[in-house]
């Protein structure tokens, strides 16, 4: 089978799973999970140094193991998100940014108006912008129109594990998008990740479903397999659904007839 590469802004990846780095029981479990998942891209955050507590981050742990995708998680204004992206670029020497602009700390839903504004600014500033957005085809189109390298619609609110609440929207976004679609947020278990790929997503980004599972390393492996299985099923082309049974064994030559 030919290699099925996935490209964002010209960068090719083999794995279609992006893995978050937060919330693991310890560093070793994270490293083992990363290896088990096969993910080539990991997300990281940018946070203030504790002036009393030292400046150790996780960069040394991940920089040689994966392509780093810093986020603007928690930012609620265009100004904060843009500055966080610029700080991430300086800290990590990457122009890639997962743009999160949160409208509400309770729902963690994206503020789409500010998101489009910030995305346009960052694109103009030379960033490769991957925005976390609502599962709205029009919002996704606007983000692509301002130059985002991919769109990352949510399956369900961050950390809920509810899966893909509106698979019809995700399928429609995938069918219409001019840029890669990465399902981001809401995945709870492997079947959710497989479904995202079956609906036509180019990749899946998840974190909590692995890091907070009972056995993160095993769940990471499950997610890796699920993304591969879903992608293969998508490429293979599923059968149409029908409401009446249709025998799969030949009907001729049945004994006793």
């Amino acid at each position: 089978m030919a290699e099925d590469l996935f490209r964002i802004a010209g960068k090719a990846f083999t794995s279609r799973l992006f893995l978050g780095t937060a919330g693991y029981p310890n560093q070793q479990v994270f490293l083992d999970s990363l290896a088990a998942s096969g993910a080539e891209v990991v997300t990281v955050s940018i946070r203030r140094v504790d002036m009393e507590g030292g400046a150790e981050g996780i960069l040394d742990l991940v920089r040689d193991r994966a392509w780093l995708l810093p986020n603007t998680a928690g930012c609620a204004t265009v100004k904060d998100a843009v500055l966080t992206a610029q700080l991430a670029r300086e800290a990590l020497d990457t122009s890639w940014i997962k743009l999160e602009l949160i409208g509400d700390r309770e729902t963690l839903y994206p503020d789409v108006e500010q998101l489009v504004t910030a995305a346009a600014q960052l694109v103009d500033d030379g960033f490769t912008v991957l925005p976390y957005c609502t599962d709205d085809p029009i919002v996704c189109r606007r983000l692509a129109d301002v130059g985002c390298a991919a769109v990352m619609p949510l399956g369900a609110p961050i950390g809920t594990g509810l899966g893909i609440l509106n698979p019809y929207n995700i399928e429609m976004i995938c069918a219409r998008s001019a840029v890669p679609v990465i399902l981001d947020a809401g995945v709870g278990t492997a079947s959710d990740a497989a479904l995202a790929m079956e609906l036509g997503c180019d990749a899946v980004l998840l974190n909590t479903a692995v890091s907070k599972s009972t056995d993160p390393v095993r769940m990471a492996a499950a997610m890796g397999h699920a993304v591969i299985a879903g992608r293969l099923a998508r490429l293979a082309g599923r059968i149409p659904k029908r409401t009446r049974a249709e025998a799969s064994s030949p009907e001729l030559g049945l004994i006793g007839g």
Binding site: G20, T21, T43, V44, I46, R47, E56, L59, A73
Partner: peptide, 24 residues
């Protein structure tokens, strides 16, 4: 980073010092 050494701090400056941490 290349300009850290030459940057003086002036009264009223608002300084942000950040690092890379775990994130989703």
């Amino acid at each position: 980073r290349a300009r850290w050494a030459e940057r003086a701090i002036a009264d009223g400056d608002a300084i942000e010092i950040v690092k890379v941490l775990q994130g989703g």
